[in-house]
Amino acid sequence: MSIVSVLAALALVVAVLALVLAVVGLRRTRRTRGTGAEALPEDVRGLRQEVAALKRETGDALRHLAVVRYDAFGDMGGHLSWSLALLDDGGNGVVMTSIHGRSEARTYAKNIATWSCEQQLSPEEEEAITHARPTPR
């Protein structure tokens, strides 16, 4: 046998031995760490707690919004009037409306509580609230 053949055979033996040791080490690691949440490193548990806290904190953020643009009067174009809904996860917030006419614009704000309003809503305001409402996952 040539020296190259001996070195190739020796390299093959070393590679197989390394593979066996890696498999044994992996099995030991799995047995000692477990398979459930207790197997997670401590920093992962901390990150999960931080994410849960952030979700609680942002629950009342006005993060659901929708804008409906329209022509309030038939003789005007450009969709210059609008209704804007700004709501949190519970459907609390405000719907604002701006009606644009030829010589003036009027702006209104109405409080929204749990996806409804004590005051009469225009169809455009109701549409803005409907579009702002998140779809169930």
Rank of each mutant, 00 (worst) to 15 (best):
S2I: 06
I3Q: 13
V4R: 13
L7Q: 11
A9T: 05
A9R: 06
A9S: 02
L10E: 10
V13A: 12
V13L: 09
V16Q: 10
L17K: 08
A18Y: 04
L19M: 09
L21D: 09
A22Y: 04
V23W: 13
V23Q: 14
V24Q: 15
V24G: 13
R27L: 15
T29E: 15
T29F: 14
R30G: 08
R31C: 10
R31V: 12
T32M: 08
R33Q: 14
R33S: 08
G34S: 03
G36C: 05
P41F: 09
P41I: 11
V44G: 05
V44N: 01
R45D: 11
G46A: 11
L47T: 07
R48N: 00
V51R: 03
V51T: 04
V51A: 00
A52K: 03
A53P: 08
L54I: 01
L54N: 01
K55I: 04
K55Y: 03
R56Q: 02
T58Q: 11
T58F: 07
T58V: 09
R63W: 01
R63I: 08
H64C: 04
L65Y: 12
L65I: 04
A66S: 06
Y70G: 02
D75Y: 14
D75F: 13
D75N: 12
M76P: 06
G77E: 11
L80R: 14
S81R: 00
S81I: 00
W82S: 15
S83Q: 04
S83Y: 01
A85H: 00
L86D: 11
L87V: 12
L87W: 12
L87H: 09
D88V: 03
D89F: 00
N92V: 08
I99W: 02
I99E: 00
S103W: 03
S103Q: 02
S103T: 05
E104D: 10
A105P: 02
Y108F: 02
Y108L: 01
A109R: 05
A109Q: 07
K110A: 03
K110P: 04
N111L: 11
T114L: 15
W115N: 11
E118D: 14
L121D: 03
S122E: 08
P123V: 02
E124H: 01
E124Y: 01
E124T: 01
E127D: 08
I129F: 04
I129Q: 01
T130Q: 13
T130G: 09
H131G: 06
A132C: 12
A132Y: 12
R133Y: 12
R133M: 14
P134M: 02
P134K: 03
P136W: 04
P136M: 04
